[in-house]
């Protein structure tokens, strides 16, 4: 059902006009199959870089990446980028159905699935719209639906809820947890929100400023499914303030 990830000494340097920029110091990270990891760290610390390496969109300058498919052999990736990246010439539902189309799934089947997902992310009624007719947050929800369409074994999400209001964000956090519990993908999600991190993660990976390295890994022990009311509890706040303190140390 899901992929296990092993990063060994993964580093990345970019050659730019101002010389060589070390974006990612060697990173060691092992992610279990079906685990929910949240990456958090200051802007520019290499979170997107690490995610792109995990997704095979960027070759690391050092180290090795191991992806071990689950028992069913699936290792397809769902990627939610920092920008929505919907294709302007496809309707919203066709955008959501794109991963299935590339897999040669039949039209009726993939559109049914796409409409189902549109409803789940709150885009019901906009299935036939063009992406440019949607607000930024709606486009981002479309991108989330697209990433989920082919039931990915590894789901990589780069600040997927950044453009959303607090209420929608909470609702989609819950929806994402529900889907994840039902499907069991391995998830790596980047966020700047400490409470989102604590609400969603099995483990939170804290990164230091550039060059990014893993500064700490924090386990979140709460049982699932987690209720939004959890945020008000002492235990939740204890973890949140620990994270805040650790992030404050570095930035």
């Amino acid at each position: 059902m899901s992929v296990a990830v092993a990063c060994q000494g993964i580093g990345k340097s970019y050659a730019s006009r101002s010389g060589i920029v070390e974006a990612l110091a060697p990173v060691d990270l092992t992610i279990g199959a079906g685990e929910f990891i949240v990456l958090i760290g200051p802007s520019g610390c290499g979170k997107t870089t690490l995610l792109r390496i995990l997704g095979g969109l960027l070759a690391p300058s050092a180290g090795t990446l191991g992806l071990k498919p689950g028992a069913d052999g699936r290792q397809n990736i769902g990627f939610v980028f920092q920008a929505a990246n919907l294709l302007p010439w496809l309707s919203v539902e066709e955008n959501v159905a794109l991963p299935l189309k590339l897999k040669h799934e039949g039209r009726a089947k993939r559109l049914t699935r796409a409409r189902e997902l549109c409803a789940q992310v709150g885009l019901a009624g906009f299935e036939r719209s063009w992406p440019r007719e949607l607000s930024g947050g709606m486009q981002q929800r479309g991108a989330i639906a697209r990433a989920l369409a082919d039931d990915p074994a590894l789901l990589l999400m780069d600040e997927p809820f950044g453009a959303l209001d607090a209420l929608t964000r909470t609702r989609l956090n819950q929806e994402l947890e529900r889907l994840w519990l039902a499907r069991g993908a391995t998830v790596v999600l980047v966020t700047h929100s400490i409470s989102e991190a604590v609400m969603l993660a099995d483990r939170i990976v804290l990164m230091s400023p550039r060059p990014g390295r893993i500064q700490a890994v924090v386990k979140v022990p709460f049982p699932r499914p987690r209720d939004p009311a959890l945020e008000g509890t002492v235990e939740f706040q204890a973890i949140a303030s620990e994270l805040r303190a650790r992030l404050g140390e570095t930035s």
């Binding site: 980028f81 990246n85 294709l87 010439w89 082919d150």
Partner: peptide, 26 residues
């Protein structure tokens, strides 16, 4: 071609042919 759209096709492991017909040409 928008590099962001390229990322989408690459993440989905689209073939060269799919990339041409469904990304580059549109």
């Amino acid at each position: 071609v928008d590099p962001g759209h390229d990322d989408v096709f690459q993440a989905l492991r689209a073939t060269r042919w799919q990339r041409f017909w469904q990304l580059q040409l549109p």
